[in-house]
Design a protein around this nucleic acid. Structure first.
Lengths: 161, 161
DNA sequence: ATCAATCACTTGCCTAGGCAAGTAACCGTA
DNA sequence: TACGGTTACTTGCCTAGGCAAGTGATTGAT
């Protein structure tokens, strides 16, 4: 790997450590939420009927179902969300934002967005902001394309490609 | 927050979830290392005498001393690192990469860098790569400048709604 | 209609890591 | 030289989350 790429990678890797830490610290301190939990509440608040299937929500949050299930359990214990079985298909579980949950997101989002503004957008030019969107999407797509990298030695069947 | 910023933020937040997950998965599977542990070994391998003070290393890794201390304990148990008390000042602890540790980094780095190449650099133009470096550093600097942001009226929400 | 897959979670077990309370080494002051 | 303060970790306790083995609901083939 070239020296220039190494340096860019070092700066990105640093960002990957520090930004989540900074966001979690603010949300935890001001609202008692992790960044992940806030994202879940925010997604539900934006959804029709304030309701989403867990599997859909897991996709939005780039999360495993296991992690989401535990997060929903915590949010349910706080009274911000409740589960119902999908009447259309009993295998699905729907997460529904309660009124208290709606109040919670409404209160916690401004402070969170203010920090994102300060840390991310205030630090960048309009053109860099646009580029950041393009770059982030490109990398995410590359991850989707090669979700699990298979080493030369370990050849598993590549059926659905 | 404007719709455009929301969209950029969504794409960055997605990246912050997915890229570390992808990197950890590859390193764990191929080398039995977390991304963090690999970073520690790599930093030691690059250091003079393959030796660094824990506090210096914590800075490089954007980590708490607590997290680093536990990681060093794990790496020591594997025989890749050992601790010595700094002869110049007994408060400092030096982490030293063993020969086995050097072999370990040498073996694990190519696969890791190949994935970084594939996920990050292959997805971007030369100009985007340069911009990514500038953008990452700008955001990291903003985090340093405002490590803990205090909202105008820091209200903790009441115990139970 | 039956029963074997499959799907959508859920949960037990285990590790990583945060916070805060230690502990040991060193420094500054008197 | 004594000793309180600071520095550099270390560790006990607790929560988050990964993996893999369940569980219940539904679908599909016979």
């Amino acid at each position: 790997m070239s020296a220039e790429r190494l340096e860019v990678w070092a700066s990105l890797a640093t960002l990957l450590e520090r930004l989540p830490t900074a966001l979690d610290a603010q949300l935890q301190r001001d609202s008692g939420l992790t960044h992940f939990e806030h994202g879940v509440l925010y997604a539900l608040d934006s959804a029709p009927e304030r309701t989403l299937r867990l599997s859909t929500l897991a996709g939005y949050a780039s999360s495993t179902l296991s992690r989401l299930s535990r997060a929903i359990t915590r949010l349910e214990a706080k009274g911000w969300v409740h589960r119902i079985i999908d009447p259309a298909d009993g295998r699905f579980t729907l997460a529904v934002l309660t009124n208290e949950g709606h109040v919670k997101v409404t209160q916690s989002t401004p402070g969170h967005h203010a920090l994102v503004d300060r840390l991310v957008f205030d630090a960048l030019t309009a053109s860099q902001i646009r580029q950041l969107g393009v770059i982030s999407r490109s990398i995410s797509e590359a991850i989707d394309t090669a979700p699990v990298w298979t080493p030369p030695s370990a050849k598993v069947d590549p059926p659905t490609l």
